[in-house]
Design a protein around this nucleic acid. Structure first.
Lengths: 124, 124
DNA sequence: TAGATTGCTATAGAAACTATAGCATATCGT
DNA sequence: ACGATATGCTATAGTTTCTATAGCAATCTA
């Protein structure tokens, strides 16, 4: 198993294990935020369902991610598979603003990003 | 170079390139959030300084991360090295609540203690 | 009993990250 | 001018992590 980052213990990038760095270590793994996001959006779901929603994730990675998220207390097993815990939903809510920010970011990039062959499309 | 995730182009986990998934792909790389966070906190700084603040990051990874963050428009070069852009600071501000959340999370973990157990107490 | 669905493991190869050394340029003190 | 220092960054090697795919054991369904 991969080592699961926990606040207070040395994590990648912080020997002190500062909570924020532990959280970044946990969330800064491929698909970690995506899994929590997806699970929060679609609600309790089976392993397979989650795997489908996460398009390209491999079962091994999904399983690892789920175990980490469980150990962290963000996800738990339920009758019908997996679900976000209250704490997990709380984290999801903290992540929510990133949704609209990402759209703003996408706009910013399409405005400034490609000086080549831009389909002269100035937005209002 | 590593492929830099951009909204609108296929990213890891989303062939559609949904902005949020592109952002997750970018931020879900080791040290991506840590670098932005640190750079925002300490202000404009040199490559070496940043490397020291990020305790264990390797120069290769830092360089890759910086290039990605630059391409994304979150970081730019300045006289004295590197600095977060306005957009980058905006993202940092979105990430800020994670700071206090992570402390709450650390508390939660020290209260519940046992990582592996039966159905945890979801609510009181 | 056969089929479908579930959670998950196995394996191999590719990609990413760490650790460390070191280069080329620029700036500094003398 | 000359060495010492600091800068941004590359090179190499070894480890870890992720993807892709196949498939197994257990549980339901009929």
């Amino acid at each position: 198993m991969t080592k699961i980052p926990m606040p207070g213990t040395p994590v990648r990038g912080s020997k002190s294990g500062a909570p924020i760095m532990a959280l970044f270590d946990l969330l800064g793994r491929h698909w970690a935020m995506g899994v929590l996001w997806t699970l929060s959006e679609i609600g309790p779901s089976t392993f397979r369902r989650l795997q489908q929603e996460c398009e390209t994730i491999s079962p091994a990675a999904l399983n690892t991610r789920l175990k980490e998220l469980q150990a962290a207390g963000f996800v738990h097993r339920v009758e019908s598979g997996y679900a976000a815990t209250d704490l997990g939903l709380q984290l999801y809510r903290q992540l929510l603003p990133l949704g609209s920010f990402s759209k703003q970011w996408a706009e910013h990039l399409s405005n400034e990003g490609t000086p080549i062959s831009g389909p002269t499309k100035p937005e209002a």
